[in-house]
Every structure is written in C-alpha cells, then in structure tokens.
Amino acid sequence: MYKYRVSKNSGSGSWVVQRITGLALVVFMIGHYILMHYQPESGHTYEAVLARMQFSWYRIIDLSFLVLGMYHGLNGVWNIFRDYKMPTWARISVLSAIILFGLAFVAWGFVIIFSIPYLS
C-alpha cells in the first residue's frame, strides 16, 4: 500500500495529545502567573510556598503542571528532531536522552515538592 512505510504509527495520537496538553498548560499558566505576580510576595517567599503546600490538592496541581509541561516540551523537542532525517542509532540516542532527562527532572520536581513539610 505504501512504498516507504517505516512505521504503522501515523503519530496522530501524539498530535492530539500535544494539542490537549497545550490547551491545559495555557489554563495552568494563567493561574501560575496570577499566583506568582499579582502580589510579589506570593511567589517569592518560603512562607508563602509553605502555606500553599499545606493543601495536598495544591501539590497535586503543581506536579500535574510539571508533568504536563515536561511532556509537552520534550515531545515538542522530539518533534523538531523528527523533522530531520537521522540514522537509526541517532534517533534512538536522541529519544533516549530526551526521555531520561525528562524523567530525571520530573523526579527531581517530585522530590522538591515532597521535601516541603506539612505543619501540623
């Protein structure tokens, strides 16, 4: 059917997810900017961060934002690489590096958020 079929996956799923995560990130970003800049103290002092992090739902929102942002961003980077013709070893190396970097920094984000104590 196709002369140059290399993959059965058309990438349409990834394309839809990129649109959805992008729109979700716009919503998160509006909230993030209001929170960080409407009052200068709210974003930039330990007390304010500590107070917010007493609510578990806030930690969940924060980490969702992190995971979505990292996925959308690194998928975007991978999409840029996919525009160029690469030998298989280069494709595998680049994709592995992207995934490893992403997982490492998301893990670091989780460690940071959960290191903030609950006061009770």
């Binding site: 007390e47 942002g69 961003g73 690194l74 980077v77 984000g109 940071i112 290191s115």
Partner: peptide, 22 residues
Amino acid sequence: GIALIAYLFLHIYSLSPLTEGE
C-alpha cells in the same frame, strides 16, 4: 518552545533550594 523547555529545566533547578529549607 525551545527557550521555554530550557527554562523549565532551569526552573526546577532554581527551586531546588526548597529542599534545604527557608
């Protein structure tokens, strides 16, 4: 886009002192 993903990495790094306290 490239600038923003680079910033996200930087952002995680710059918030890492949260683990060391106030």
